[in-house]
Write a protein that binds this DNA or RNA. Structure first.
Lengths: 209, 209
DNA sequence: GTACCAATAGACAACTTGTCGGTTAGAGGT
DNA sequence: ACCTCTAACCGACAAGTTGTCTATTGGTAC
């Protein structure tokens, strides 16, 4: 009947269920009761481990982003790898699809999930910008690229890719490709790179489905 | 006691109160009861004019955006005005601060208002992109600027300015200026314009407070 | 003055989230 | 083997939410 578990184990169990439900039905459309029922615990148990529903969301997001940032930083900061390769590999590691593993993108792009999306975006950018800034600065010092303000330029690129490529499902195949090509070309332009220098490496990262 | 009003009048009355409350307290933090109480109408009256709370939000946003788009399009499409002036005037007309008149930006940037923010952003961009695309195409045909994909380039610029400059309050004065300068410079770069060609005209639009 | 209907009222059902006092499993001491 | 203590758990409940439904009324048209 009554099963007692270690606190961290139960916490993760709750986060697992919450993640699945939030990502498939959406945050607003998932009640705490849904979570309770699925796990088979009581109301009090949930609120023993978390202070609020939003607290669950925050913990869930942090758990997801920690993994992304860990992966990305390992690549982005590895100076033994050439800058251009580091760049594409970092973009790959930080990419949308990897965010939740099984996150249904159709859910993500709905306005009803705006809270989740906004929180993710804000925290992800906050952590990724320093990594990519470092990368760009390395590229600049090696004469591979140039920009007056690496931080704000990368912010613009990350913000755009994160927003537009999350909502990719709403576009036709043709539009998708056009958007990806424009993005890659604009990245080259902003970083003063030669036309086409990023194309070959970046295209498969954003456009493969 | 019981006051009967014309439907559109009552609708606008509800939207007025909703706009003030949503923009000061936030959407989630405002209950339909708050709106009812303030106007002095009954539950049934509200739901006679709107189908749901979100319906009120949608109508409110449309009312605000219609005005912005109207103002912006009048300027953006006026071919009797030089392209560069049209551009800066259009940016001014479409700018954040004018969004709600008295919208408290501190509220807007909170994650709790993500739904409102996301809906506004999505619909605003959808309407503004065609206007600015036309503007850029005019600029290109006059040899003032150049880009391979006006639509996606302007999408990137609008998305960035809309997101970052909405959240401006969280930055220090120094950071603000740096962000604005970087944005203007990156706009010039993306449109292949000469360095500084937008600075004088655009700086006061984004940086004046 | 009567008939009609758009606009209003407010009780109510069905859910929410978060709280709180009480309960128990099981680890650690004796 | 028995106590003790507490981390983990339970579930009833308070307080609030949105949306529905039936009944009512003010004004307009005839």
């Amino acid at each position: 009947m009554r099963v007692v578990k270690d606190a961290t184990e139960r916490r993760n169990e709750i986060l697992d269920v919450a993640e699945r439900l939030f990502c498939t039905r959406g945050y607003d459309q998932t009640s705490t009761n849904d979570i309770l029922a699925e796990i088979g615990i009581a109301r009090g148990t949930l609120y023993y481990h978390f202070t609020s529903k939003e607290d669950i969301l925050d913990a869930m997001i942090d758990r997801i982003l920690d993994e992304i940032v860990r992966r990305t930083s390992r690549i982005a900061l590895d100076e033994s790898v050439p800058v251009l390769e580091r760049l594409t590999q970092s973009v790959l590691a930080a990419n949308v699809d990897t965010k939740t593993g099984d996150m249904i993108l159709e859910q993500m792009h709905k306005p009803q999930n705006a809270l989740m999306h906004a929180k993710m975006q804000e925290r992800l950018l906050k952590q990724l910008i320093p990594l990519f800034t470092k990368l760009i600065e390395d590229g600049i010092s090696q004469g591979l690229m140039q920009t007056d303000d690496p931080e704000n330029t990368i912010e613009m690129l990350l913000l755009y890719s994160n927003t537009v490529f999350d909502d990719m499902i709403v576009y036709s195949e043709e539009e998708k490709k056009k958007k990806v090509l424009a993005f890659i070309r604009n990245t080259e332009i902003l970083l003063h790179m030669e036309k086409g220098s990023l194309l070959e490496a970046m295209l498969p990262v954003f456009y493969r489905k």
